[in-house]
């Protein structure tokens, strides 16, 4: 239990630092902005109560916002993502439910399960984020394109990071 806690604290700090100091500076034509820090919400344990999940999402969003000068923007997106997570998990759950004590990782449930899970949540996060950023529906299709391009980028990084840190 302790190791799970410290593991998540380190993951939080590591992902936020990686996001604000390195990934925020990646600039491919303004369309590809990866938001790898959402991985923190994806990898939280199954048993986490929803209210705690929401509070953690909120703290994560505020931390990233403070560093990127966009107060409220990432917060709204991460809270939305945290809210959707239990529903996505319920839809994707295997026939006999999740084994207690396991984590939502590729090693436990396979690549295709993890892809579905991360695509749904990352897309929801990016959707909220980019539409709040322009704060309206002008340039609708350009925004949609930015969302899709960035989601693909983020998910590739997430999958890659999962294979780099893969442990049996």
């Amino acid at each position: 239990m302790i190791s799970l806690l410290s593991q998540n604290i380190f993951r939080f700090i590591g992902l936020v630092l990686l996001q604000v100091f390195i990934l925020n500076n990646i600039q491919f034509s303004g369309y590809f902005n990866p938001f790898l820090y959402t991985l923190f919400i994806l990898l939280l344990p199954f048993e986490i109560p929803t209210w705690f999940l929401l509070i953690l999402s909120f703290i994560l969003g505020v931390t990233v916002d403070v560093f990127s000068n966009t107060l409220g923007l990432h917060t709204a997106a991460t809270v939305f993502m945290g809210f959707l997570r239990p529903y996505v998990l319920k839809v994707l759950s295997p026939r006999d439910g999740y084994e207690p004590g396991t984590l939502p990782k590729i090693g436990n449930f396979g690549l295709s399960w993890f892809l579905k899970y991360s695509i749904a949540l990352v897309f929801a996060h990016h959707f909220m984020l980019f539409f709040l950023e322009v704060f309206g529906f002008d340039n609708f299709f350009s925004t949609i394109f930015r969302i899709i391009a960035s989601s693909i980028f983020t998910i590739s990084l997430i999958i890659l990071s999962q294979y780099i840190t893969y442990r049996k």
């Binding site: 929803t50 209210w51 929401l54 909120f58 107060l71 409220g72 917060t75 709204a76």
Partner: peptide
Amino acid sequence: NILIFLILEIFAFILIVQ
């Protein structure tokens, strides 16, 4: 849970607008 979600989300919106 839905209440907490709405409160946090509204708080985030207020921050954005402010």
